[in-house]
Amino acid sequence: MREYHLFQGVSRAVDLCAAPGSWSQVLSRKLKGEGVKNADVKIVAVDLQAMAPLSGVIQIQGDITKISTAEEIIRHFEGQPADLVVCDGAPDVTGLHDIDEYIQAQLLLAALNITTHVLKKGGTFVAKIFRGKDVTLLYSQLRIFFPDVTCAKPRSSRNSSIEAFVVCRNYNPPEGYVPNMSNPLLDHCYDVDFNQLEGPNRVIVPFLACGDLSAYDSDRTYPLQLDPAKEYTYTPPTQPPIRPPYEEACFLKKHNLLTKESTPQPQQQVTSREPQQQEEQRPGGLEAEVIDALEELST
């Protein structure tokens, strides 16, 4: 993201949907500099879930669709608006692209809505975006608030990935726009002139591939032993998910406790050659209940 000079002159930054906190870490390092403490820089991280504490990052556990969250952010900045708002949140994808793209767009619009409450005029908004079938609708929406919208994809992101970032600069809401959190911002619809469904006129923003070409290529397969002098060691992922929804299901699966369809079990068969034991048939559970109930009624 160096190409954008995103961090130049930024002293108040907001990280929305921050958990587990990687962007906050980057912001903290970039804005405060390694080792040097810059007292003017403030970073506020917001998420619904609790995060592990990060040094130099103020954390708010809150809902980005609530006005109270916006107010709390401003409070931390002592009444000043933010210079930069970042939203790297993404939903768990279902695999149906239309639903996934819609949910991601709503997340971005919710982030944009709270951003209009906290961002200074001329400020920057960076958010994760899925480049799918209706991405031009989001671009046209963002253009209303930001004259300068570009799409950026880090080289560390895989070539085939639909994930990218929109970098919106120079925040400039339409004249007379009053930030309003009581209703969600909805995405645009296709129109016949400027953003057509099937025509030549579509809102497509400039694209920038960012990052260093000499860095590792995420699409390339490398040998495990990159350095012949060093032996390969396994490194676990830095931040495993905290309490994922499937935790209990995985526990049950691991211990073979998921409900299974019953398989046929052998029954003892009494052959006619052997004397058949005449046993009174016990009524089944359901019938027993009915009989009990009838008896109760009759008394």
Partner: peptide, 13 residues
């Protein structure tokens, strides 16, 4: 309509 049964083959006979 379906059953899995043991035939109890073992018998003095």
């Amino acid at each position: 309509g379906s059953s899995l049964s043991q035939l109890n083959f073992t018998s003095p006979k």
